[in-house]
Simulated assay, not measured.
Amino acid sequence: MTVPIALVVVLVVLGAVAAGLAGRAAGTARDALGDTGPALAGVTLPDDGSAGPPTVTLTPTAAESPRSAEIRDLVQRQVDARNSGNYGAWVATSSATSAASVSAAQFADRNRTVKVGSVILRRIDPVGDGEYVIPMGMITTQDPAAAPQDVPVSRLCWQVSTSVVTERGSLRIVDPMAGSSLRTPC
């Protein structure tokens, strides 16, 4: 009788610790980015409720990278693939790991109502071996039912840190890892 009660107590304590650590990680990410408010720095929030233009732009800092045009083009092709629901084009821009983790059906479901716009690449940071970290911002619109469960709204502003790697002789985008994205209704 005491074993089940002790097990429940342990599980409750572990759940509380996990929730605390998750909140701390999110706070650390927000502190690293700073409070950007509802609008993305360098991007005007569209008054019409849209995601804004689908064109990927570069900050002056990002434009200084020797591979800025190539990386901007890669991100643009991925944005276009998401906005048009073109799974094959999305796979062509994604790392092998990212492409293998998302089926055509999952891609279609994820992007059914999503439109991506106002994308800005803030920096392009080389980390070695043909890999780059790209802090970026973007706006998405979506059916609130298709939005992340914790923010079921029609428009979100995102701060994302994504990686670009060299695979098979080409640059490819790695889907952002858990904890590398902040989103807020805007």
Rank of each mutant, 00 (worst) to 15 (best):
95 S>Y: 15
59 T>D: 08
77 R>W: 08
116 V>P: 02
111 N>T: 06
106 Q>G: 14
67 R>L: 07
58 L>M: 07
71 I>Y: 11
26 A>E: 12
115 K>A: 08
36 T>N: 11
120 I>Q: 05
90 W>N: 11
110 R>S: 11
40 L>F: 07
32 A>S: 00
35 D>R: 01
95 S>W: 12
42 G>F: 06
127 V>R: 02
40 L>H: 05
47 D>E: 09
106 Q>M: 07
109 D>H: 10
36 T>S: 13
119 V>W: 03
34 G>S: 12
110 R>F: 05
89 A>S: 09
68 S>I: 08
70 E>D: 08
75 V>F: 06
29 A>I: 00
111 N>H: 11
81 A>S: 11
67 R>Q: 13
39 A>T: 10
111 N>P: 08
117 G>N: 02
104 A>Y: 12
69 A>L: 08
100 A>S: 12
94 S>W: 14
104 A>K: 14
79 V>G: 04
77 R>D: 09
51 A>N: 12
115 K>M: 09
122 R>W: 03
86 N>W: 00
68 S>F: 05
66 P>S: 02
52 G>D: 06
53 P>R: 06
118 S>V: 03
118 S>R: 02
27 G>Q: 02
73 D>I: 10
80 D>W: 06
110 R>H: 08
103 S>V: 14
104 A>Q: 15
47 D>Q: 10
52 G>P: 13
58 L>F: 01
111 N>M: 05
28 T>K: 01
107 F>Y: 12
123 R>K: 08
125 D>S: 03
93 T>F: 07
82 R>P: 04
84 S>Q: 05
115 K>E: 04
37 G>E: 02
88 G>Q: 15
125 D>Q: 02
44 T>V: 15
118 S>E: 03
121 L>I: 05
76 Q>H: 09
89 A>M: 04
92 A>C: 04
30 R>I: 07
50 S>W: 04
42 G>I: 07
94 S>C: 10
63 A>C: 09
58 L>E: 09
29 A>Y: 00
80 D>K: 01
97 T>H: 12
60 P>K: 06
129 D>S: 13
43 V>S: 10
128 G>F: 02
